[in-house]
Write a protein that binds this DNA or RNA. Structure first.
Lengths: 124, 124
DNA sequence: GTGCTTGCAAAGATTTTGCACGGCC
DNA sequence: GGCCGTGCAAAATCTTTGCAAGCAC
């Protein structure tokens, strides 16, 4: 079950690793096709799953669609309810610091995701 | 465009308003069918959209599937990555208080959603 | 060579929509 | 009566999967 180093996986990661725009699988597919014209969408999905399993990619579920972020971008997102765009945000101080569960819950928290909803500047 | 008071809408709201289990559209559909056997799934979806537009229902996008919560339950959720169950959680102190955006961002935040991921007690 | 990976296409799962009919106001 | 809401079924979207061939190790 070792992960092989394939051109497809490499190009997908290259496209994604400096990406700030929270692309969908389809958008990634279009980008990767410029390098590998006959890659299939299924392959893109399978490699994105691997990257996520490896902890390199974070999957945002926004409005019934998956968006993919390199994991370094581990911050909250602002989703405009009018135009649907996704923005990166930084919060005041350490509000975003690991939210602490009450110690007696029995849950093991490995990650969290905070999403803000509202209207962006251009849509106001 | 006024919202009419129909039996379908009422039953759906009745099913949902005290619900703590974050049901999916399909689960709501099954429940409502006990009252209105020939209701259609499309109608359930349309009424859930109305309730959401009215601010009565919050939609959680979890793992590519919508889950519906009465809006009173406005708290974080814990999603077990092993069994997929969704739990309500309460955080220590005010961590969950409205996250404050830096004042200069131009975003108008109307709501937010915090999700914690990890392993629940039974799956540990 | 072995077995993971790919491309292709079909299947899946979930959600949305068109249409004619029916019921609320 | 006018118009919104409904049931039904088909369509749409997004994602996953089976399979035979191909490539990495």
């Amino acid at each position: 079950m070792s992960t092989r180093r394939t051109r497809q996986l490499e190009v997908i990661w290259d496209v994604l690793k400096d990406e700030m725009s929270h692309p969908t699988a389809d958008q990634i597919y279009e980008r990767v096709r410029r390098e590998i014209p006959n890659i299939s969408l299924g392959t893109v999905y399978r490699n994105l799953q691997k990257l996520a399993a490896d902890g390199k990619v974070q999957i945002l579920n926004i409005d019934r669609t998956q968006h993919f972020d390199p994991i370094s971008n581990k911050h909250p997102h602002f989703i405009c309810e009018s135009c649907g765009k996704v923005y990166d945000v930084t919060l005041d101080r350490r509000e975003e610091a690991e939210p602490l569960l009450s110690p007696d819950t029995g849950f093991t928290v490995t990650s969290h995701q905070l999403s803000l909803y509202g209207t962006c500047e251009t849509c106001s």
